[in-house]
Design a protein around this nucleic acid. Structure first.
Lengths: 143, 143
DNA sequence: CTCCCTGCAAATGCTTTGCAACTAA
DNA sequence: TTAGTTGCAAAGCATTTGCAGGGAG
């Protein structure tokens, strides 16, 4: 009980700090969203976030959820991953890392950067540099 | 001229052969689509394919393009790549390979499997096996 | 008071689907 | 004949946008 309360306070403080670091005004809606995403490293769809929000006291409109997520992505607060054509997840872990994708469930699982290394990378086209490298290991149930 | 004609005939034959191998009835529309995709390894959006088709003699409806592409994907004739949220490309190279994505132009470029190798892969979650590994190296114009 | 934020609903854009006409074996 | 295909238009669906009302500083 006291632990829970302490955790919640800490989370709120942390969320506020991160928003301010990114020069985002900490409105009630943005705070709620940040708290959901920052509570733990997670991969959530806009829909799942919307459901989380409805369960909490404060109600947030769908438009605001999308607008806020877009803002967070632009500010580098979360990462947007397109796992398939008509669904994308917001990844609250900012540090570079890779993913398993469970094809049966659609679930995304983090891969620690330490667990994956390249032996050889291809030469880059003239005049370009690497902005990022994404690896997705697609998994199926073992036969 | 004779070369061109020969190439076209060959392409048509090849397209027909591939459709039959996959037990897809070679209708005129499917042949045209297969020819566009098989002419060379390429990454085309549904829109680009639609434009190619309009330029050719035979006209094909948008619905048929989507239905046919879906069929081709299901049959493993082409690969569908989701490069961003509201756009996907159809990759006519079936063999496993990876991609550069030019963030400035959206263009996808093949990476030969020989040019990329892993030094270390992460342990897989219990009861799963690898269905595929996709690497996307995102590029930006060099500063 | 002013600017920015929010929420609703309408709009957008890609993709899918229902259905009647059609086509090839 | 008969199952499989096509094309049109309408439907779907995730996301974006226009705009009026609202809130914080």
């Amino acid at each position: 009980m006291t632990n829970l309360a302490a955790t919640e306070v800490k989370l709120e403080t942390r969320a506020r700090g991160i928003l301010e670091q990114h020069h985002i005004r900490p409105t009630a809606q943005r705070m709620k969203l940040a708290e959901i995403l920052l509570a733990a490293p997670c991969h959530l769809t806009a829909e799942q976030i919307l459901i989380s929000l409805r369960e909490s006291s404060r109600k947030v409109s769908k438009a605001t959820v999308y607008n806020t997520l877009k803002l967070f992505v632009e500010q580098g607060l979360v990462r947007q991953i397109h796992c398939d054509g008509d669904r994308c997840v917001y990844d609250s872990r900012i540090a570079p890392h890779h993913h398993f994708q469970n094809l049966d469930t659609g679930e995304m699982i983090d891969i620690s950067p330490d667990d994956l290394a390249f032996e050889r990378l291809p030469p880059l086209p003239q005049g370009t540099e690497i902005a990022g490298v994404d690896v997705v290991i697609r998994l199926r149930r073992k036969a």
